[in-house]
Computed example of a mutant assay.
Amino acid sequence: MVREQWRAAVRWLGWEGAAVARTAGSAVRYSGPERDAMVQSLKAAGAAIAAWALTGWWLDAPLALMAPWTAILLVMGTVYRSVYSGAQQFVVIVVGTLWASAAMAVTDDSTLGAMVLTLPFMVLLGNYRRLGSQGIYGATTALFVITYGASTLADVGHRLLETLIGAVVGVAVNAFILPPVHLRSVRDNLHALARESGDLLTTVAQGLREEGGLAGAGGWHDRACRLGQTVQALADARQWRAESYRFNPGWRMRRRGLPPPPVRIDALWERVGAHLVALTRTLRNAAGEDAPLTAPSQAYLARWADVAESAGTVCGAEAELIEGAGTAQTLRDQRGAALETAWVAYEDLTRDLPQEEAAAIAVAGELIVETQQLLRELAAGIDSPPAA
């Protein structure tokens, strides 16, 4: 039992490491959301360092931690969010600082007494919906103030100044150093969704053709579930695009590029991802000696792999069309031919179903149902091509 747990932990670490490697590789090779995340992360780190240099080194502030802490939180996905959240955060931090300082003065610098007077109110205030995600920083600021243990007017003034400096540095770095303009984020996330779907289908097809191919089913299911993260990133990108031009001094310097595909395409690829999750879950539940379901024959899985491979080709061609790479007509022809091949292989698969053992019919039938729905979604994508 313990050995199985260790093996499961090792497999999970392997899948997680592979996912990290794919993300890092995408950040290096592609100009997309992974690279944007890397740039924003480096900007946040730089803003924190600059804020510390101003307050801790130049001003020799007594609680210089407040400045880099504030700065790093305000390097957000859009300049508008930085400004809006910065205003919210500054108000919350001012309230937390003043309340905690007053509590320290009333309790004669008693840490426990000040916490009793401060934290219940500040945590409740942090849940006020109009403060959004910034509300909790009032309580954490109060903890910093109480732990530091000084409540004079000079100390309070220093903390507010440090917070203001951090907010200004964070917003300034985000606005004037590679300001985020999400002109391509929608298209990039759609491209990633189609590309990752195609890669997953191709990987599954290759694995099923090998002896004991279901051994990798757990990893396939993990990859399919991760598509949900890209779907959420796509939804965020739609919102970020609408915010990108607000308060952003760099938007005029950015090329507009192609308009994003329509919103209905997002829902189509979200449904494709859901079918991939269902398919890989079925394969995972039929893998291994102690599997709860009985796997179809190796020959049947190999024939299903033909369908999956053709569907993966459709997704790959669609990804290139979304990206605008290659000759559009050539890609459309490739996509249509692959889908036709997938339907032919699917029809052959349905005719082979009665030949499977009774115990394996449940898995084989579920594969057929989900595959049919997957192919219909891909066909709908061809009827309404997303490439603008």
Results as ranks from 00 to 15, higher is better:
Gly166Met: 03
Leu375Met: 09
Trp6Val: 14
Pro292Asn: 09
Thr203Gln: 13
Ala337Arg: 09
Val20Gly: 11
Ala71Gly: 09
Ala215Gly: 12
Gly77His: 04
Ala242Val: 08
Val307Ala: 06
Asn285Tyr: 10
Thr107Ile: 01
Ser185Met: 07
Phe90Tyr: 15
Ala387Thr: 07
Glu210His: 11
Ala267Asn: 14
Met38Arg: 04
Thr55Val: 04
Val79Trp: 02
Phe90Pro: 02
Ala44Trp: 02
Gln232Thr: 14
Tyr245Asn: 12
Thr330Gln: 10
Phe176Ile: 08
Arg195Thr: 13
Ala61Glu: 08
Leu73Asn: 05
Ile136Val: 13
His221Asp: 09
Ala338Arg: 01
Gln239Leu: 14
Leu331Lys: 06
Ser185Glu: 10
Gln206Asp: 14
Gly312Asn: 06
Ile49Cys: 03
Arg252Lys: 11
Leu54Gly: 01
Ala308Met: 08
Gly96Thr: 01
Leu161Cys: 08
Arg254Cys: 12
Ala47Phe: 01
Thr78Ser: 14
Asp199Gln: 12
Ala325Phe: 15
Thr147Ala: 13
Met115Gly: 07
Asp222Arg: 15
Trp69Val: 12
Gly324Thr: 05
Ala8Asp: 15
Glu366Met: 13
Gly14Ile: 04
Gly273Glu: 03
Glu347Ile: 07
Ala380Pro: 01
Arg254Phe: 06
Asp383Pro: 04
Thr350Ser: 12
Thr280Asp: 04
Ala286Gln: 02
Ala338Lys: 00
Ala150His: 11
Asp188Ile: 01
Trp269Lys: 03
Leu42Gln: 07
Leu178Asn: 12
Asp36Pro: 00
Pro249Met: 06
Cys225Ser: 14
Val272His: 06
Gly365Ser: 15
Thr294Pro: 04
Asn285Ala: 13
Ala37Met: 09
Ser185Ile: 04
Pro261Ile: 06
Gly218Thr: 07
His182Asn: 10
Thr330Val: 13
